[in-house]
Amino acid sequence: MPIDIDIAHVAKLARIELSEQDMASYRAQLGVILDHAAKVQALPTEGVQPTSHPLDMVNAFRDDVVTPSLDRDEVLSQAPDATDGFFRVPPSLDNE
């Protein structure tokens, strides 16, 4: 099955800036891997439920109890940029 990959769109969704050259090379590699991965389509799976957890368990919850949060200075010490108790990032272009 020939696989059509809009690599620029995929890279944009994944927020990874790629050069034209990188995109071409990833597109080719993804094609090969997906070609192999497409073998999954050969198996008859009609009526088969997908598995998203290997163990059949349900309902793992916690009680609504407050536990201590992290120390803010420790948290912000790892931030690339912080000011006045906030993380700081460049402006957004989206107008929301």
Partner: peptide
């Protein structure tokens, strides 16, 4: 009292980034 997936307090009055 606490958040959806962790034990941090739900408290909108708190100083920024203290309930994390």
């Amino acid at each position: 009292a606490s958040k959806m997936f962790c034990g941090c307090a739900v408290d909108f009055e708190a100083e920024p980034n203290t309930n994390v």
